[in-house]
Design a protein around this nucleic acid. Structure first.
Length: 656
RNA sequence: GCCUCUGUAGCUUAAUGGAUAAAGCAGCGGUCUUCGGAACCGCAGAUGGGGGUUCGAUUCCCUUCAGAGGCGCCA
């Protein structure tokens, strides 16, 4: 129960779900607190019963692992001071811990393997879970979880085996909230004959990550990519191609021998050429408009349309491969134009669309608080909006979804409002099933980007830039010399650097893109995470080669109450187990950046621990934790970094 | 003019209505007889302005200023 509606704009499908039910141990804690509250105020049972318990992580470990604000919420209802209530509740929790009270609300769906074989006939007790409760500040109740619980939860993570359907990659043991839901995710959308620039890179990075995060929480995701292969931009580019061939006396066969990347570059030049001529020269403009019309009538009849389109698609494929993305199906504007046009023309009869004097057909958006918008032009072909209604139907028929997400830049927000509204009126079954994930634009810090003038930063050039930088550092570095494939490593690290720089910020806000920063290797960066992972693996390799007899760490030997942790170990332990919660949060808000900051936190905490304490050389010192336990932390850190990076769409390397 | 989004440290960003607003970069000063120094530690530095709701506001509401985007035949 929330007092206020969430400020986050999110899909309808998501708002009806009880996200706090997962992961199960959080639900368990909520139940425990509720049990306490209900028994503590028997005289106000009816008032108290309706309260939902909200748990959150306090800002500092100093305040425990979870805190709840029930005391504030109850204060108004019970007309008592928050502090007094908090004390009462906290005392009751501590009493339950002391008396080994069993939990009574717990449902069978709570999964805490390894914990339930306690003493009380398989029932969990407060003492099994909680260390203590206390009161802080104006009335927060802070809960301290037992170390054994963390170890159990982390072991669960390490041993989780279920693979995602599509990728066979195991991720995390959660996700019943969205289990079985079908999500259609449309992303990337480059237009043929145009550059694949850093804006597309942001799109594809967010899209790929969301596919994986949503799969991790149990949904089935369809990967779609909608590309504009007809329209004025295509006509301009083809005109430009012809012009360049003619002026520079180049044979088409010469271009055909180019690599995909060279062809793409050539097309980019042609597009710039065509657009500039289109703006300057009225005669050219007429010519291009004529060609555009011909493309709409029958694209294949237009010379070079099919061939240049093929060049683009081949090039895009090479980028998808480079960034580790694939699609279940490509959708094209050319395949929905006719149907869109026919749908709109037909719906004029029922008054949904209105035919204007000049023959164009528009959607009277003003009726719904939106803008009026042309769906079929006076030249009688469907605009982007007109195509959209047919596309939505085609997509739904391809994969009947519970939710369709359009991952498209926020400059198209108005367009999607209109498109969704028109689709909904034509096909009521679409109502409430669409969500525009409007991510911010990528602006260059210096100067403006424009494919019209040819001023763009392409995805490839960015990766290459990063790669060069990484190779230099690899030269200098003393570690990992002569081990591993240099080309392979530098490629993966550079893709990681660029993708992470796109993912670490909230998708909603605009990015002021800085080349230097996006290929950065230190601080909050992709390479830093990869480095930490490789570091963990290196330690684990070393241990393994020295301990051939034991191939695995025995986790059961860790569950000793005598475990005395130092600060660094404790902080790391108390962060690692939160991974599933973070993934869930990222899914709920469609925000990969939350996962980024968490992984960065993990890496940082591990590095602090690593710097201060020896992992392999800790066995013989008295009073220190065992090598076994430190290896457990190292294994868990590596595991979570690996899974987490996978969910971001970033590949790890064993050495770098 | 109307609609949408965004204003947090010098820069780039974080923060489901909670506790001392969290980091990275750049700057300055340190750690190292290294299990991987692409590391670690310390210092300094911020919620555009004004109201309101609330026990509590960076977060919600109103207003103002600033920036970005969109507003019938581009996609």
């Amino acid at each position: 129960m929330k007092d206020q509606k969430s400020p986050l704009d999110r899909p309808k499908l998501f708002t009806n779900l009880d996200w706090e039910k997962e992961p199960s141990y959080v639900a368990l804690l909520g139940d425990m607190v509720k049990q306490v509250v209900v028994t503590a105020f028997p005289e106000n049972l009816s008032k108290v019963k309706s309260f939902s318990i909200h748990l959150e992580h306090p800002g500092s470990f100093h305040y425990g692992d979870y805190s709840t604000n029930v005391a504030f919420r109850l204060a108004g209802v019970l007309k008592k001071s928050p502090l007094e209530l908090a004390k009462q509740i906290s005392d009751q929790v501590n009493k339950y811990i002391k008396t080994n009270q069993t939990t009574s609300f717990i449902s069978d769906s709570v999964h805490l393997q390894g914990m339930e074989n306690g003493k009380n006939g398989g029932k969990l007790t407060y003492r099994d879970i909680l260390e203590k409760a206390d009161v802080a500040g104006p009335g927060f109740i802070n809960l301290w979880i037992r170390k054994e619980v963390f170890i159990t939860l982390i072991s669960q993570l390490l041993n989780y085996k279920k693979a995602d359907k599509s990728t066979k990659f195991t991720t995390i043991p959660l996700a019943h909230v969205l289990e079985g839901k079908k999500i259609f995710l449309e992303f990337a959308h480059p237009n043929t004959l145009k550059e694949f620039h850093i804006g597309h890179l942001r799109n594809i990075s967010i899209g790929e990550s969301l596919v994986r995060i949503l799969e991790a929480v149990g949904t089935e995701v369809f990967r779609a990519n909608y590309e504009g292969d007809v329209g004025l931009h295509v006509a301009k580019a083809i005109w430009g191609v012809k012009k360049i061939l003619e002026r520079e006396k180049i044979e088409l066969d010469h271009i055909r021998r180019f690599t995909p990347r060279e062809k793409a570059k050539f097309l980019g030049r042609a597009y710039a050429q065509g657009s500039q001529a289109y703006e300057k020269d009225k005669k050219v403009q007429k010519e291009i408009i004529g060609m555009n019309k011909a493309i709409y009538e029958d694209p294949k009849s237009v010379a070079l349309w099919e061939e240049t389109r093929g060049w683009s698609l081949e090039y895009f494929d090479s980028i998808y491969k480079r960034v580790g993305t694939y699609f279940d199906r490509l959708f094209f504007e050319s395949e929905v134009e006719r149907q869109g046009r026919e749908l709109v023309i037909e719906a004029v009869k029922s008054g949904i669309f209105i035919k204007d004097k000049d023959g164009s057909i528009y959607f009277p958006g003003k009726k719904y608080g939106l803008n009026n918008c042309v769906f079929v032009t006076s030249e009688n072909y469907a605009t982007y909006e007109g195509k959209e209604v047919a596309l939505e139907e085609l997509e739904y028929n391809t994969f009947p979804y519970d939710l369709s997400i359009n991952n498209v830049a926020n400059e198209q927000s108005n367009f999607f409002q209109i498109g969704y509204k028109a689709t909904e009126i034509l096909f009521p079954r679409h109502k409430g099933k669409h969500f525009h994930l409007a991510y911010g634009m990528v602006h260059l810090k210096s100067g403006k980007m424009s494919s019209r003038t040819g001023q763009v930063i392409t995805a490839d050039s960015l990766f290459d830039e990063a790669k060069e930088k990484i190779l230099k550092i690899m030269e200098k570095s003393k570690i990992g010399k002569g081990e591993g494939n240099k080309a392979d490593i530098s490629e993966k690290v550079s893709v990681a650097a660029v993708k992470y720089s796109m993912l670490r910020v909230n998708p909603k806000i605009d990015i002021a893109f800085d080349l230097e920063e996006s290929v950065s290797l230190d601080g909050d960066s992709g390479p830093y995470l990869l480095y930490t992972y490789a570091r963990c693996k290196s330690v684990l390799r070393k241990w393994k080669s020295a301990n051939k007899s034991k191939s695995q760490i025995d986790e059961s030997s860790l569950k000793l109450s005598s475990l005395e942790l130092n600060t660094e170990e404790e902080v790391l332990l108390r962060t690692l187990y939160r991974f599933p919660e973070v993934v869930l949060g990222s899914a709920e808000t469609l925000s990969p950046n939350l996962l980024c900051s968490y992984l960065f936190q993990i890496a940082g905490k591990f590095n602090v621990f690593y710097n201060k304490h020896s992992i392999l050389g800790s066995g013989n010192k008295s009073g220190s934790t065992s090598t076994e336990f430190r290896l457990f932390l190292t294994t868990a850190t590596a595991h979570i970094l690996n899974k987490g990076l996978y969910l971001l769409g970033i590949e790890t390397v064993e050495r770098m």
